[in-house]
Nucleic acid binder design. Structure first.
Ligand SMILES: [Zn+2]
Ligand SMILES: [Zn+2]
Ligand SMILES: [Zn+2]
Ligand SMILES: [Zn+2]
Lengths: 166, 166
DNA sequence: CACATATTTGTTATATTATAACACTGTTGA
DNA sequence: TCAACAGTGTTATAATATAACAAATATGTG
């Protein structure tokens, strides 16, 4: 059963152990891929790790530059194929309003995409509020619309940045 | 006071009088621009009209081609500047997941963007469900996140297309 | 009206994001 | 060993968007 109550996203927890975030994400990715019998190759794993470098989303060309900095001769298709794999396996998400990619904080669970995007620090927090899903379900149900995917992108300023500003 | 109850969006009303949609949108645009003391020039008005040609969103380059078909020598900046104006005046919205633009069905009211996007017919219905806004406000409030804009893009199949499929 | 000013549009060039097509390499399992 | 397939490399190009500057048009003022 999925978490049914909004929890504080790690991204919005000042001074959290981010090394742990990355580690957990990679371990979970390995586990999920093994269970699904798909291959998390070195390239795919490295791209996932680069995306997890922070809680701010990363563009495809930024990833390409990072790979090149490591001596890999990465061209766009190399990056986009790795991204496509990670998206298909739902290990990352694409933030449409930013054309950028971010690690999923609860892969394995199929879920709607809901983000809080801080315009100041760039941090994106994935949230999971069932009340939002339910409100959407009421509307779509009333209109006979059958949803199959959705993204909610809320742009604003996170608490840390607001605190810092005053 | 804004409409406080979900209503059936014109976009999802089969056989509605779309000519009336376009007419109303243009009249309302004229009125709003006059009130704001900004200029809805011929170009801007024509771009708005082209966007309102249907309830499916239109890409910037498609608009450019339409303008060229009318003898205007439109280059990308011409189109993007008109789009920027219409976006600023909130007469149109940009659908981030489609890189495309659609006429706003209730300009004048400041509102969050909430769309139902039919993958089959391409129709985008703008909805206005206060319960969604409230659910989002609860989460953002709890996290100390100050939202200033948001977009909800629900992709799926509309009732008409589902009916047609069976 | 003549003129200064500001806004809008035109034009050229380029940036950014993403995909198509085909070749090569490595893995897997007869 | 070999066939089949999955993954990656390589080249080229498509699709979306912006920068910079010039020309035209509208607006206000004397
Ligand atoms: Zn972290
Ligand atoms: Zn996720
Ligand atoms: Zn209509
Ligand atoms: Zn609207």
């Amino acid at each position: 059963m999925a978490q049914r109550r909004p929890t504080l996203p790690p991204a919005l927890t000042r001074g959290h152990d981010h090394h742990q975030c990355v580690h957990d994400a990679l371990v979970e990715a390995e586990r999920l891929c093994a269970g699904r019998d798909v291959r998390l190759t070195e390239l795919r794993k490295r791209v996932l790790e680069l995306i997890w470098a922070s809680h701010a989303p990363v563009g495809a060309y930024a990833i390409m530059d990072l790979l090149r900095g490591e001596g890999r001769n990465a061209m766009p298709p190399t990056v986009y194929r790795a991204l496509d794999f990670l998206l298909e396996q739902r290990l990352i998400h694409r933030i449409a309003s930013l054309n950028a990619y971010i690690g999923c904080t609860h892969p394995g669970d199929r879920h709607a995409m809901q983000y809080l995007i801080c315009k100041t620090c760039g941090t994106v927090a994935e949230i999971d509020n069932p009340a939002i899903d339910e409100a959407i379900a009421v509307t779509t149900g009333g209109l006979g619309f059958a949803p199959d995917s959705q993204t909610l992108e809320v742009s604003g300023i996170c608490r840390d940045c607001r605190d810092a500003a005053r």
